[in-house]
């Protein structure tokens, strides 16, 4: 699943080093439309529903946080 997540992230923003960055939202690296593209692709790929109130910096600031968030979403 991690490879797939990385693939989606890089398809939206190939210029960002997702393995390294730790403040994707807090540092403003991801714009709101990037977040939308990423979230809607996750929804399609992993068959989960992501709510607007799931979009929190702590869920999206790093690759690890995104993986943990999605794992929890898929499991719930």
């Amino acid at each position: 699943m991690q490879e797939k997540i990385m693939e989606i992230l890089q398809s939206v923003r190939p210029d960002i080093d997702f393995a390294k960055e730790q403040a994707l939202i807090d540092d403003g690296l991801l714009e709101s439309f990037d977040v939308i593209q990423i979230m809607t692709t996750f929804m399609d790929e992993f068959d989960v529903y992501i709510d607007a109130d799931d979009i929190e910096p702590e869920n999206l600031n790093s690759f690890d946080a995104i993986c943990a968030f999605l794992t929890q979403k898929i499991g719930s």
């Binding site: 403003g28 714009e31 709101s32 977040v35 939308i36 979230m39 809607t40 992501i50 709510d51 607007a52 979009i55």
Partner: peptide, 22 residues
């Protein structure tokens, strides 16, 4: 994203995302 960020944060969180992810 750089100007009046607290208003931007409010709008993004409470209006923009709820509309797009509706």
């Amino acid at each position: 994203a750089r100007w009046h960020m607290s208003l931007g944060e409010f709008m993004e969180k409470y209006i923009y995302y709820p509309i797009v992810l509706n």
